[in-house]
């Protein structure tokens, strides 16, 4: 029996349809590549060298801000995280080991700060909902904040993102907005690549359910 090829409804070839056009943020942020000479700079930062500190800050500040902003959706909090991350860099410069990815090391610091900051300042808001599985949330409630027509799509998405668990949210943000590879996320979070893949899959599934009403699908 011949298998049917389901391509109807897509005006692009399968691969093109799948790999959606990517975020404009990649055009906005300065793409940071790993510098071979980053280690001497980190060493200089350890001795209090201001120029080295400024160079590293200017290279990685946007990456950290992007991670923090997409996590908190708050400019001031994100800037606090940026400053705090570079303070930690200065304090812990001699703990950075040559040969390791400096960007991942720095993002690991930023990630920890984000989680701590979030638990300290944000946790109480909507805590009860976050503890429930996504399927149990009343997505058709009369809560005005959840009505598809009452929010812009970005606000709606931010609301949905906040309903994910800390870990799923962090991984989704790193993957989707910071455009990090699964391998890099695994290094930053110090977990297996398979776990990252699985958690990102769960995050996507949950977002699919939560975003259903906003993107014209049933939850």
């Amino acid at each position: 029996m011949m298998k049917t090829k389901y391509t109807a409804g897509f005006d692009k070839p399968v691969e093109e349809a799948a790999h959606g056009s990517h975020v404009n943020t990649s055009q906005v942020i300065q793409k940071v590549t790993e510098h071979a000479d980053v280690y001497p700079l980190v060493q200089k930062v350890g001795t209090g060298d201001r120029e080295a500190f400024k160079t590293l800050t200017s290279l990685y500040q946007r990456k950290i801000y992007l991670l923090a902003y997409s996590f908190f959706r708050n400019r001031d909090d994100a800037l606090d995280i940026v400053q705090e991350t570079f303070l930690r860099l200065y304090q812990k410069a001699d703990m950075y080991k040559e040969g390791h990815s400096f960007q991942n090391w720095l993002l690991q610091i930023a990630k920890n700060l984000c989680i701590d900051y979030y638990r300290k300042h944000y946790r109480h808001e909507g805590e009860t909902n976050r503890d429930k599985p996504v399927e149990e949330l009343n997505l058709t409630s009369d809560d005005p904040s959840l009505r598809p027509d009452s929010l812009g799509l970005n606000d709606a998405f931010a609301e949905c993102l906040e309903k994910l668990t800390e870990r799923q949210r962090m991984i989704f943000v790193m993957k989707h907005y910071n455009q990090l590879k699964y391998k890099e996320i695994a290094q930053i979070l110090d977990i297996a690549v398979g776990t990252v893949k699985s958690l990102n899959f769960k995050a996507t599934q949950n977002l699919k359910i939560l975003m259903g009403p906003y993107v014209g699908e049933r939850p």
Partner: peptide
């Protein structure tokens, strides 16, 4: 569709 929806957050970022 979901991930394209996530891109709606991009202009704000």
């Amino acid at each position: 569709k979901t991930l394209n929806g996530a891109d709606a957050f991009n202009p704000e970022i």
